[in-house]
């Protein structure tokens, strides 16, 4: 598929150029690339907020083309839940319960069932039960973000699309939120698409990586494949996860790793036999 912004006008600009790829059921796919590489434009095609200028995007059994009518997109939008950057800016209701219940009601769930869902989702995102009757605007920024995410989860989407969901949160908040998505993925088989600048999150959580540059999909692979070539990453203005950086420093000193570790657990395991395996303790 390709996408041109303001196609057919003098302001036309390339957004996406000839991208082909598949995101599988139950996968955790990270999309990386520096600012302006087309990551967010791709995301907006995943629930037809944008339609391809040429080519097709298939979500489940629904094929989206340039010709697709906007009228029949509701089932698709229920299927793909989008958590935008700074999602808390979209809260609007008087209470947290009503805000979370809004989405499901919009898709035909009764008020009673929608409020029951709100109850369940608040627990799922790790908020105390008593926030349900509070105004979302009395909560902290991190809590508001969770309410917004609960609202997306309440629509019980098959795919959860996350655009830098932890931006602006403090480190403990970031860690809790990424652990929450990991649990949804592991325990409920939730398919996740994550756009991020955090290479550590890619190494820790994703099973598939798409690398975007200038609107093109320039590489796909597992995190291990993507991060095995530091020179290539550097040439594309992308960083390494912290473990991979540390491994490079250790290799330069004379240590050996095979395969190159991606997490501190893997690095510690591979270091152990090379430093006397704890015999010094």
């Amino acid at each position: 598929m390709s996408f041109t912004y303001q196609a057919g006008t003098p302001f036309a600009g390339d957004g996406i150029k000839d991208v082909s790829g598949t995101i599988h059921d139950g996968s955790y796919t990270a999309i990386i690339g520096h600012t302006g590489s087309g990551k967010s434009t791709i995301l907006q095609h995943l629930n037809a907020l944008l339609k391809p200028t040429s080519g097709t995007v298939t979500i489940g059994d629904k094929v989206i083309t340039n010709e697709t009518n906007n009228k029949n997109l509701k089932p698709l939008r229920q299927k793909v839940g989008m958590v935008f950057q700074f999602a808390e800016n979209q809260l609007f209701e008087q209470t947290v319960a009503k805000d979370i219940a809004f989405g499901p009601q919009n898709f035909g769930v009764s008020e009673k069932d929608a409020l029951a869902l709100a109850d369940k989702m608040v627990a799922m995102v790790g908020l105390p039960h008593d926030v349900l009757e509070k105004s979302p605007f009395d909560l902290s920024g991190g809590q508001m973000r969770r309410v917004a995410i609960a609202g997306v989860l309440a629509m019980q989407p098959e795919v959860l699309v996350l655009d830098e969901p932890t931006a602006g949160l403090d480190p403990a908040g970031r860690h809790e939120m990424m652990t929450m998505f990991e649990r949804l993925h592991r325990e409920q088989g939730q398919t996740i698409v994550l756009v991020t600048h955090q290479m550590d999150d890619v190494a820790d959580y994703a099973d598939t990586v798409w690398v975007m540059a200038e609107g093109r999909l320039i590489k796909t692979g597992t995190p291990r494949e993507i991060f095995s070539d530091p020179a290539w990453l550097k040439a594309n203005q992308l960083g390494l996860p912290k473990t991979a950086q540390m491994a490079q420093q250790l290799i330069a000193k004379g240590f050996h790793f095979d395969p190159r570790p991606l997490t501190e657990t893997e690095l510690a395991d591979q270091l152990l036999p090379q430093i006397g395996g704890g015999q010094h303790g």
Partner: peptide, 10 residues
């Protein structure tokens, strides 16, 4: 990393 190594008895 230090913490991970301490947990492994180093």
């Amino acid at each position: 990393l230090k913490d991970a190594l301490i947990q492994r008895g180093v």
